[in-house]
Write a protein that binds this DNA or RNA. Structure first.
Lengths: 215, 215, 215, 215
DNA sequence: AATGAATGAGAATTCATTCAT
DNA sequence: AATGAATGAATTCTCATTCAT
């Protein structure tokens, strides 16, 4: 139905360049996961075929099933990998934060950092978003991720605002960040991580400021 | 690769129940477009096969190519249909608005109305979002839609705020609405149209209020 | 399986330019036959679809079956048309011939005349040659045509040569002319009608001359 | 459009009878090429479907694309195979020839040998002739083959005749042989390889003889 | 006499998955 | 642990043919 030109140039970190050789199982699995994300970015979810993924990983087609049992499980592993990136970034940003306000900033900063708020990451994540309907496992992972984001924000905001306001601000922030990710996925040039953070921080500060005034 | 159970129960309006009979071309095309949207909602973009769509429309598979030339063009027509729904709703809401503030409210109201802010509509729209990368025509339509939304908001806000603030608020609102659509697509129960509107209106009013204070 | 660009630019004599209008049955049949030959020349036998043929004829798809019963019968009618062209040309050339030698020349001249020895005619004829295996009717027509050519030549040559030599020369001539048609079908520029005639006439005259010497 | 009975009984050499088992890639490719030629002979070019070819080869349909990328490329490989047969036969015949005259005879002998001048070979070759218009690759191969035939003849004849006469005789011979192939393709019984060779040799010898006389 | 919407069989091709090696 | 040949189901698309109008 469609042309098969790559959507994006690859940025495979490890794989591919390695000569096809014997590795240990963990290593191959890691290569396959990286290759999956890379293939989704290059070709989109549904053109990320087993063939292309394993080629990208420097392996042959049968290995996906050898290592993961099925393509679906490989995709789930790739999504877990993305979530783990988010988690790592969050931990890193939170490490520097010692006040509730700093924590709220850190959470947003993480999600709009250069690392996570890249075209690649937002694009691939959008692909997974649209697939959750078809895979209960992906849906489960997405729920976990969304809830974690929301809960983290809420925890921090609860110390700054009355509970129901905190709840509302958290929802607004989540919506904003999700929406910014979509924009980024559609068009890398639309907004830089820096600009996105400025946008949301300005909103948050004003919100907290006015709450402080009214509260 | 996956099970093929329907994601959602159908809500086919006309088709299918009609006895297989002669229609005129326009009628068949309309049925096919409705069936496409319905099939995407039921099965997701990539499981919305020519077979399923035409069956849903009460026609045989060849008709897609007879009426639209290709499946891609049918999908584009379906996306245009969704955009036209948005447009109609917007026009309807704007009809009641006679001040810049009312216009800004109306634009948001339209996008978070019971009609547009439904699980079905948000879900299907998310599917198209994730496909824009693979189809230049869908990407073009998406850009038109996003720009229209942004420009409309900006026009209204420009009369209420300094230009650069208006620009910023417009971006925030767009991001929020897009993010809320994503949430709705993931989980219908997450938030009602009413609640979504309240959330965004509260944000907007506070934003305008504080701007008024500071301005 | 293949691209569908036209192989050759059309040279439809009548059809197409006429506005789609009511005609009498004979007229429509003639248009369809012309359109068939034209479509075979443009697209090759198997890409000469009912759609394309009827479009070329300025009619809609259903008419082939209305007028001819089936596409196969239309193709047979088209082949009969080509044979009738050959026949007409032959009669015209024979009209000027009053000796056996002149008759032999005339027969060859007809088959290598500007009218018949054109890229279009040879190309279309080759297409029919390759289809005789699939249609008994086309095979029957081809046999009739080949036999007529052979018999005509033999009749003329029999008055110039002993029977078995005449038989042999006739076979050689038929083979030469068929082979020249193939060349022409492959590459219009390969040889002009004039050059083809010179080639065969030179052969024939030498053959008759040497036969005269030895005889 | 047409009945699908086989045109000719198969003469598959190996395939089919083998138990469906693992082969190496070369072996499978060879089987597929043989099966293609066989299927064209049995069903004609356009009824030689991927299904029928792979069945004939004792494989399933997907393998054509696995081994050749597309059906078109398989057909091109089959044509190269036919050309290679011609080449082999020619080399074999030329091996015995040590004078220019013997070489000319050998070239003709090869093209009208029992091996090449068979119904099967001529029929299949005619099918390819009629397809050259639709495939640039097949056309290219055909040109190579035609030029090789012509050049070989010309080289030999140049040592026996003045250049322009040699050129003319070569053209006559090529036309004759091509024409005889067409006849054979249409009707196996029309002429035996032996009779065809006698016909052309007689022509050639007389031609050289008379040239000798006149020269 | 003609239209053109609709059918349905069959085409090439794609792809996850299996499995002998 | 890895390969890559093979499978078979599913997909889009094509097309002769039918037939209500």
């Amino acid at each position: 139905m469609r042309e098969t030109r790559p959507l994006h140039e690859a940025r495979t970190e490890a794989a591919k360049t390695l000569p096809r050789q014997r590795r240990n199982s963990d290593e191959s699995q890691r290569h396959l996961i990286d290759a999956t994300i890379s293939a989704i970015y290059k070709h989109g979810f549904h053109e990320a075929t087993a063939q292309r993924i394993s080629e990208e990983a420097g392996l042959s087609a049968g290995n996906i099933h050898y290592h993961f049992g099925s393509k679906d499980e490989l995709f789930a592993a790739a999504m877990r990998q993305l979530m783990s990136d988010i988690s790592d970034t969050l931990v890193y940003e939170l490490g520097k934060a010692d006040t509730p306000l700093a924590r709220a900033h850190a959470i947003i900063h993480a999600n709009l950092s250069e690392r996570l708020y890249s075209h690649r990451n937002c694009f691939v994540w959008l692909q997974f978003w649209s697939e959750t309907a078809r895979s209960e496992e992906l849906a489960r992972l997405e729920r976990i991720n969304a809830q974690r984001f929301h809960r983290n924000l809420l925890d921090a905001l609860s110390k700054l605002l009355p509970r129901n306001e905190a709840e509302q601000v958290a929802k607004e922030l989540v919506a904003m960040v999700d929406g910014l990710w979509i924009r980024k996925a559609q068009d890398n040039a639309s907004i830089t991580p820096q600009a996105a953070r400025t946008l949301v921080f300005a909103y948050l500060d004003r919100r907290l400021g006015s709450a402080a005034q009214t509260g």
